[in-house]
Amino acid sequence: MSKRFDEIPMAGIIIEPGNAMEYKTGGWRAMRPVHTDETCLWIKNGTCGLCWIYCPDNAVRLIEENGKYRYEYDYDYCKGCGICANQCPTGSIKMESE
């Protein structure tokens, strides 16, 4: 909802850091990255992480829980650019049509 002039901080100052998270860019996606655990180095031994490093939208989640490694995408934000798949050294990511 758009607010009135006296309901917002002055001069367009945005006081909630990173509130762009409220804006979901997942809808932009035409192709979706799909990951397989089998060959992934992160899953195997917690290394590599190139997909996470290069993703421009912070949409790769590398998770470490009780010494186990998990892998997720945040499809709320992933724009489907395919950078992760292109840079993956083990071919663990495939781009599929939405």
């Binding site: 990173g18 998270m21 804006y23 996606r29 490093i53 421009p56 912070n58």
Partner: peptide, 18 residues
């Protein structure tokens, strides 16, 4: 830099900032 920015898909600039 959080997700939810509106740089084009595949733009390298957010990675540069990261």
């Amino acid at each position: 830099l959080s997700s939810g920015h509106r740089m084009c898909a595949g733009c390298a600039a957010p990675t540069v900032v990261k």
